[in-house]
Design a protein around this nucleic acid. Structure first.
Length: 554
RNA sequence: GCCCUCGUAGCUCAGGGGAUAGAGCACAGGAUUCCUAAUCCUGGAGUCGCAGGUUCGAUUCCUGCCGGGGGCACCA
């Protein structure tokens, strides 16, 4: 990694300065090496001198000058640097020799799809829990965002050396499912022309009717006198789960495990949590309910964990579930969910802490809502009335690539406005096609070159011919993938990949329009072709990270 | 009332203790005898919500206020 090399050089010179008494070591670790935003400010810059000056009340530019001397001296003949200079209030700007950047091409060629991937996860086990929608209806666009976000986070972690498990947690018992069964029975009776009562808070979607219809086809009216809702619930769950999984499959999402809340009860793990908490004096009874004394754990109010009806609230199995995650040996647990569930976090973490586990290993990723825009108007959605837009419909309309890309265009914290007008555009300003087109264009160039008998691999391309401004910019952008990927993974922020792709595609399209890749000069053509091939690889690898296709032609 | 989150260009959003704050869309004009014009180039636009504080330096960190969203159930 080039940045790491520069960083190492700067660290080395900082230490050398300490050794020689040029400055103290108080600034160790608190200065930065970064890419300046502006052209002319070098490939990398460090604020070391300003940090030192701040601590020692000295003139930053003087310290910067001393640092420049060290960097140029210590560097010696085979230095990374072409030029190092003091700039602005005391920045030290480093200009790298072109060959340092040019060397990224053979590096990419050598590593192929592995370029950019890292090992900072060191094989640690991480559990990414997402979607976790109960099987009561089709996935809504909110679930869609979460599904895509969770999967992309999982991909980032895999690409940085973590052993990832994707898990879907669900509950197929309880009130919601009962209501689902009752709703299905009501539709069943309705379709048979029999008297029925639809539950007040029932599920009104058309999909319930379809399930009832399927039930009639299978079993006729044999269930008309059934007082138990179980057969209805069972059928509904079956159909809905199949539907959800089908939608997820269309998005390219596969789970490694489905964790059923019910199993926690069957194995006595829920009771066990209550017993453990009770032992620690964190549980008490009041008004027929069982309370968790979260105020003892620094929270504002105590919470009911078992209702007076004897049914646990969602908190209790959630705590038990999280304890199981720890027991299953995960080093890190990432929970992705919508901001409407934000309130559950502190209670569950308090439970985890109370049971003696390190809550620091649990990282919640909370995403804000999605609003759909069509014709400049917000599409009104209401789950209860079932006039919401499903992921399925979205996929029918714009396809999986656009769906995934758009859901990842914003950081999780931001509300996401999904512009259907833009998303359905088959051309021009649709950012998905913009990026994919760059990839397709590169493939096309390679095809054309092959026809003409020019191949990047012919002989050893002379990369020193790649000295155009646009070429340097592309090389630098490509070289930045490893650190970008690592940072995005650690921050659990896949949107950074989307911005990276758009930037890379823009740089390429600009380059393409200005310079001919396969031209009259064979040596230059080979070098540029090698650059194009590396770029194609980087685009493809980055697209894989967000689960979007890399078409070879469009 | 309390908690979380967001507030950056006309719109949608990146960025982030430092050097002239970015992109896309929208708008206006221009580019193709040549590797895909699903492309490129040029143009304008912002007191980075407001007010204090910390700092050599704040749009970035802290506090308060204002505004949008979400939450504060014996729903999940």
């Amino acid at each position: 990694m080039i940045k790491a090399q520069v960083r190492a050089k700067v660290d080395q010179c900082f230490a050398l300065g300490v050794e020689r008494g040029l400055w103290g070591d108080a600034a160790a670790g608190s200065y930065a090496v970064e890419e300046p935003k502006r052209a002319g400010q070098g490939d990398f810059a460090t604020n070391l001198a300003m940090v030192v000056a701040g601590r020692e009340k000295r003139n930053p530019r003087e310290i910067a000058a001393a640092l420049v001397e060290l960097l140029t001296d210590a560097a010696g003949g085979d230095s990374l640097f072409a030029k190092v200079e003091v700039a602005g209030p005391g920045f030290v700007n480093c200009f790298l020799k072109p060959q340092v950047w040019q060397a990224v091409i053979p590096e990419i060629k050598r590593l192929g799809a592995g370029f950019g991937r890292g090992t900072c996860g060191r094989g640690r086990k991480v559990l990414v829990e997402f979607v976790s929608a109960n099987p009561t209806g089709p996935l809504s666009v909110g679930h869609g965002r979460q599904a895509v976000l969770g999967d992309a986070i999982a991909r980032l972690l895999e690409a940085t050396g973590y052993a990832v498990t994707r898990e879907y947690y669900y509950n197929d018992a309880g009130r919601q499912m009962r209501v689902l069964g009752e709703s299905t029975r009501a539709r069943y009776l309705e379709l048979l022309g029999l008297p029925f009562t639809f539950p007040e808070d029932g599920y009104q979607g058309e999909y319930i009717r379809e399930i009832a219809r399927a039930l009639i086809e299978e079993r006729g009216d044999s269930l008309k006198d059934e007082s138990d809702t179980a057969p209805f619930t069972k059928k509904a769950e079956e159909v809905i789960f199949a539907d959800i999984n089908n939608t997820l499959a269309r998005l390219g999402i596969r789970f490694d495990s489905y964790y059923n809340e019910h199993s926690l009860y069957e194995n006595g793990l829920v009771d066990d949590v209550v017993a453990s908490l009770r032992e620690k004096g964190l549980v008490y009874e009041q008004e027929g309910a069982v309370w968790f004394k979260t105020t003892d754990l620094g929270l504002e109010q105590d919470r009911v964990i078992i209702k007076s009806t004897g049914e646990p609230t969602y908190r209790l199995p959630d705590i038990a579930y999280h304890r199981e995650k720890f027991r299953r040996g995960f080093d890190w647990m990432v929970n992705v969910f919508g901001s409407d569930h934000i309130a559950t976090v502190p209670d569950v973490l308090a439970g985890v802490r109370a049971l003696g586990y390190d809550e620091g290993k649990v990282t919640p990723v909370i995403h804000q809502f999605v609003t759909l825009m069509r014709d400049g108007q917000q599409v009104k959605m209401s789950t209860r009335k079932a006039n919401f837009v499903t992921v399925e419909e979205l996929l029918d309309e714009v396809g999986p690539d656009v769906t995934r890309f758009f859901f990842l265009m914003r950081k999780a914290d931001s509300q996401l406005e999904f512009d259907l007008d833009l998303a359905t555009k088959q051309s021009q300003e649709n950012p998905v096609y913009y990026v994919q087109y760059a990839h397709a264009r590169l493939c096309s160039i390679a095809r054309q070159a092959a026809e003409k008998g020019v191949v990047a691999g012919d002989g050893a391309p002379d990369f020193s011919l790649l000295i155009e401004e646009e070429e340097m910019a592309l090389l630098q952008a490509m070289a930045g993938l490893p650190s970008l990927l690592e940072n995005a993974a650690l921050a659990l922020e896949p949107h950074r990949i989307v911005f990276y792709l758009q930037d890379l595609a823009a740089k390429f399209h600009g380059y393409y329009n200005r310079h001919r890749i396969v031209g009259d000069d064979p040596a230059l053509s080979r070098a540029r072709l090698a650059l194009a091939d590396a770029l194609r690889q980087v685009l493809a690898s980055s697209l894989v990270l967000i689960g979007v296709g890399a078409p070879e032609s469009m």
